[in-house]
Amino acid sequence: MYASRYDPVMNSAVSAPHRPPRRPHAWLAALLLSQLLVAALWWRFGARWGLPAMIASHLPFWWGTLAPGSALFSPVLRRLPTSERVVWLTIDDGPSDDTRAILDLLDAHGAKATFFVVGERARARPELVRAIVERGHGIGNHSQCHPSAWFWALPPRRMRAEIDEAQRTLTALCGRAPRWFRAVAGHANPFLAPALRAHGLARVAWSARGYDAVLSDVTRTIARIERDLAPGAIVLLHEGARHGRNVEMLARLLQRLDALGYRTVLPEPLEVA
């Protein structure tokens, strides 16, 4: 069973809209209409008008795919709906060699986080996933293989497999299915929404990040995050980066959160009709 000591009441959880995609193919109508308009312009005015119109008609779909906060293809949670001085810590890409040190740091500060884990990494180190759950933290789906270079371009079958396999892996390890999903690099092409809907997964982006997956400068990274802190902020963090300083970055961030009077919370999913 899913063994968790987390008490949403004692930890002052914040209710957050949980919005799995309801109409995952709605974008098709917009695409077809836009291309009909392009065809009409091309037929009436030729390539001089038709070509720029075709390029312009594709720009929203590129934006919808590559912009982490875009809700063009599926709803996405960018911050918690609260005026309380609380933040949601989210930690991507684990489990890793950093996981146990991160858990100890969170315990030392009385903090909670959601770990968006990669299915194949969880399967290889199940004891770390169980440790996350046993210490009262959340688990989210972050794909099965984390294809960071190509997630934005995955075709329907491969996209579905990434979500399905990770969900099966994490459900087997945790005893219940994750309810939140973090897209790899934040990218969400049109084929993601049907896979999320099949599992009742709601997509989560972020409102504060320090690029800690690539930057090794702790001071600069924390300054970037602090600049975007606000009530209800969703903070994007990583573990296991090649520079080896993610644990140090989290330690500094937790110190700053304490100094600034912020508490960490786990969101309590609020179903949306």
Rank of each mutant, 00 (worst) to 15 (best):
G136V: 06
L33V: 15
T221V: 14
W63T: 14
P24A: 09
A16Q: 03
A113V: 00
Y262A: 02
A124K: 13
D93Q: 07
E120I: 08
V133N: 01
L254I: 11
D217N: 11
A185E: 11
L253R: 01
L89S: 05
V265Y: 04
V86Y: 00
Q144H: 15
G110P: 07
F181S: 03
V76I: 07
Q35R: 09
G200T: 08
A223K: 15
V204Q: 08
N246G: 10
I225T: 09
V235Y: 02
R263I: 06
M249N: 04
A56Y: 10
L170N: 14
P231T: 13
L215V: 10
P269A: 11
P269E: 10
H18F: 02
P17Q: 08
E162L: 03
L257T: 07
L106K: 11
L105S: 09
A161Y: 09
D228H: 02
L201A: 02
R220A: 13
E165Q: 12
V235C: 01
V76W: 01
I163A: 03
G50S: 10
R227D: 00
G138A: 04
P17N: 14
A122V: 10
S96P: 02
P60M: 10
A108F: 03
L106D: 04
A16M: 04
L237N: 04
P126N: 07
M1S: 15
R209D: 03
D7Y: 07
A195T: 12
F191R: 03
V86T: 12
P178A: 03
E162S: 07
W62R: 07
T219K: 07
H243R: 06
R197D: 03
E248F: 05
I225C: 00
L215E: 11
Y211S: 12
R130Q: 15
H146R: 07
L66S: 08
L250N: 05
L77F: 03
E239C: 01
R135L: 00
L103C: 07
P75Y: 10
P126L: 09
V235F: 01
L89M: 05
S70Y: 10
S148F: 15
R245A: 07
R48L: 12
Y2H: 12
A53G: 11
V117K: 01
